[in-house]
Design a protein around this nucleic acid. Sequence first.
DNA 1: TTTATAGATTATAATTGTTCTAAATTAGTA
DNA 2: TACTAATTTAGAACAATTATAATCTATAAA
Lengths: 139, 139
Amino acid sequence: MNKLFDRLKEGGLKLTPQRLAIADYLKGNTSHPTAAKIYEDLKPQYPSMSMATIYNTLSTMAEMELIQELRLHKEQIHYDPDMSHHLHFFCRHCHSVIDVPHKEGIPDFKEFEKKTTNRIDHVSVALIGVCKKCLQKKQ
Amino acid sequence: MNKLFDRLKEGGLKLTPQRLAIADYLKGNTSHPTAAKIYEDLKPQYPSMSMATIYNTLSTMAEMELIQELRLHKEQIHYDPDMSHHLHFFCRHCHSVIDVPHKEGIPDFKEFEKKTTNRIDHVSVALIGVCKKCLQKKQ
DNA sequence: TTTATAGATTATAATTGTTCTAAATTAGTA
DNA sequence: TACTAATTTAGAACAATTATAATCTATAAA
Ligand SMILES: [Mn+2]
Ligand SMILES: [Mn+2]
Ligand SMILES: [Zn+2]
Ligand SMILES: [Zn+2]
């Protein structure tokens, strides 16, 4: 029932309770959690789970392109199981990450690539600002 | 003769040899150096200069909006005295940063702001890829 | 010339998210 | 059940940046 988990299986990886817990946690999750948040939330059910396991599993999933790593600031990596093309808004007060529906718009840089012969693999766009909640609190 | 330094002066800061050295180093510099690179390059002339001074000075300059801090990856901050609107290409092999002339093109997100009432302060665009030199080396 | 003071610099310690390591445990298989 | 390679775990290591506290500097009283 969990696509993430099924893909891990297909990849020949062992099906451990930890991996299932992390896959279940991420499934349909739009909150862009950090490793620390996942650890904290899984702790009650899996008190022995290590941060290393969280990072290992997330790294594996990212390598298999099942989730994406969002490096929106230097403090922490956020993880996103939504692999569809969309952008992110990052609140620099509370560090929350909000999905931004993406409708084309990002210009192409083919000209830059041709002129310079640098190869662009990925255009990273992030909207930085202050979220609704934090704006309200400040008043 | 150095605009950066003059602005520091205007800001009421003391004009120290360290600050002048850093301002001179950055003037017209398009290499997007890190704090460590600046430290290394100034060491011969200023062997007693501390990393703390480099960071303090760069932070002050960034706060005064005389330079920008580029957080293109989690490892290091790159500094750029060019405050004009332009984008950056980042090579994930050698970590070099290359200016990309910007001709409008970045879509506006007014609609997102109105709908969600989150406030966008800044749209960060980074082109991630492999630079010319690194592409050649791999062949 | 001394003393005072505020700000700047320095060396070093602390911080912190992530990665590494090595030992213990487990899943999958026979 | 027993084997083995993969996985998990606790804790150490790492590295860029930030914080701290002592020292230094320039300038201004006294
Ligand atoms: Mn998302
Ligand atoms: Mn630049
Ligand atoms: Zn917020
Ligand atoms: Zn390169």
